[in-house]
Nucleic acid binder design. Sequence first.
DNA 1: CGAGTTTGACCCGCGC
DNA 2: GCGCGGGTCAAACTCG
Length: 238
Amino acid sequence: MHMALASCSSLAAADAAVRFFPASMAYHRHPCSGGGGLSSSTFFGGAAAAFPQQPAFGPADLGLAAPPQLRDAFERLLSDEGVSSVAVPGTFGTTPPPPRPPRMSFVEQVVPDASAYAHASRGATAVAGERSTTRTATDDRIAFRVRSEEEVLDDGYKWRKYGKKSVKNSPNPRNYYRCSTEGCNVKKRVERDRDDPSYVVTMYEGVHNHVSPGTIYYATQDATSGRFFVAGMHFGPC
DNA sequence: CGAGTTTGACCCGCGC
DNA sequence: GCGCGGGTCAAACTCG
């Protein structure tokens, strides 16, 4: 049983594997926008903690139930050997992926608890930014640091900037983005690291209620558990 | 002309 | 209660 969840044409499975993450968890640039870079293994734990509500497709599913080909793609992507021209045999066909720009970044820290984010931040408002919700400070929130020349990392989702603010004790402004998909309330805050401007500190808040606009996910249901897991993905043109 | 960005003003929570 | 600081709003602006 396969379900196509969104439409787009094919691309590298490696890209697919990376861009699989829901709330923008992949940190190499899509070929259409240039750049590259990836995460560490702790990344998965952080992602799982940050997206507990992911119903059928999530990092946990990928790590535990994804087919070997997909896991292999992740292994390659996560290794320090870089990600250029990753060819993943099997499920995803034989078309070689397009040349990938130089590896750009890696995640140094994944912080499910946003309170660890933004060392300059002070007080609950600074961290949570909650005015009208009753969520706890750690719900659906994840922060991490990525070395990147680009401030905004392409994660497959479409973001709309709604604010920019200079932060106390930091020479770098903080930018505020909202997922531009209608009905999706996911937000992210992006700022350069105060101590090392070559790093970008990103904090995601919320869970996307839709899949990445440029991705097809093929889901397979496990007969025993009834859970869905990712069996394959494709990407379309930008 | 529509979509996205910029930016100053405003709102709200927290600490003193 | 007041001031500070972060987060959001919304009008003006830019760009394709």
